[in-house]
Nucleic acid binder design. Structure first.
Length: 313
DNA sequence: GCCGACCCTGGCA
DNA sequence: TGCCAGGGTCGG
């Protein structure tokens, strides 16, 4: 076990809001209600927010057994992993100030939702998680992801409270013929086919370089278009992946919540729409980009978070 | 561009 | 018990 401390105030990173806001689905609170338990790549972490000291106290639980055995990781290496995952190289409070100036609605909501950060996730995990998200709720998505890891992911460690912990599966592990049927048995429903198909497509595109990761170097429009060629990936899921793991902070995933917010607060004329057409989707997304600027996706995440049922008072 | 179908589950009447 | 919504997508 290794432990360390990361500098981060509650305004810059609110762990509870960020980890429960439906970006990542593998974070759980320990029984003591203080410590967050989760997996980043092959690293299993306990995280505790210390608001007074403005720090995140972390413990790497599987230091001896993690997959990266080339050299022993020191405290600084692990700090870097967390800084990268939590995207800590931007000042969030500065952005909140800018967004509050240009948007009354944001200014009203922001004080109750400080520190909602967009994570920088592993693109494969991000993609497959959000293929599971269609017509689904956060609670069930989390259960599905956990069973996916247990069945196909590398064993990492056994935790006293949560039992055997596995890494998120490699794409390769989801490419054999039985995957679709097995996922059906695990309760993935019609998403089973999407996962099996998309895994094969990603694997096929990754013969020389990791295709999905390489989309970080492409422009937003191109990355979005390429993602939409995958099975079970429409405009919304493609935007989730662009925003949450491919560094496209201008991506705006327009889902039921964002649609509610947009028609209520910003674009009332869209209420007459029977369904969310491609055209309306683009209108909502463009509105957010125009109002909030090049990090509009981050502002969107704050508003999305405020609309989640579990966070409403 | 507009439906309806799609797996499954928890909440609510 | 029945109905509906939950971070949608696909095919006709």
């Amino acid at each position: 076990m290794v432990s360390g401390v990361l500098k981060a105030s509650l305004n810059e990173l609110n762990l509870s809001l960020t980890l429960l806001s439906g970006q990542a689905f593998r974070w759980r609170k320990r029984n003591d209600k203080q410590v967050w338990f989760g997996v980043i790549d092959s690293f299993v972490f306990d995280l505790r927010q210390n608001a007074e000291l403005q720090t995140i106290e972390w413990t790497l639980l599987n230091h001896a057994s993690n997959g990266n055995k080339r050299r022993k990781l020191n405290e600084e290496d692990i700090n870097d992993i967390l800084i990268d995952y939590f995207n800590l190289n931007y000042s969030l409070s500065d952005l909140y100030n800018e967004w509050s100036k240009v948007d009354e609605n944001f200014a009203k909501i922001a004080p109750n939702f400080l520190g909602v950060r967009v994570l920088r996730q592993n693109p494969h995990e991000n993609l497959l998680s959000f293929i599971c998200s269609s017509n689904n709720n956060i609670q069930r998505i989390s259960k599905m992801i956990e069973s996916l890891c247990t069945k196909y992911g590398t064993f990492l460690m056994t935790d006293d409270e949560f039992g055997d912990i596995h890494a998120f599966p490699e794409i390769k592990a989801l490419c054999n013929a039985d995957v679709e049927a097995d996922l059906r048995k695990l309760g993935f429903g019609y998403r089973s086919k999407f996962i099996a198909k998309s895994a094969k497509m990603v694997e096929e595109k990754s013969k020389t370089t990791e295709w999905l990761l390489s989309l970080r170097e492409k422009k937003y429009d191109d990355a979005h278009f390429e993602l939409m060629q995958l099975s079970g990936v429409g405009a919304k899921v493609a935007d989730c992946v662009c925003l949450m793991s491919l560094d496209k902070s201008e991506a705006i995933p327009v889902d039921t919540h964002v649609w509610q917010i947009a028609t209520k607060m910003y674009l009332p004329h869209l209420k007459k729409n029977k369904s969310l057409t491609d055209k309306a989707y683009k209108e909502v997304a463009d509105f957010f980009r125009h109002r909030f600027g090049d990090k509009a996706g981050w502002a969107h995440s704050v508003l999305f978070c405020s609309d989640l049922r579990q966070f409403k008072k």
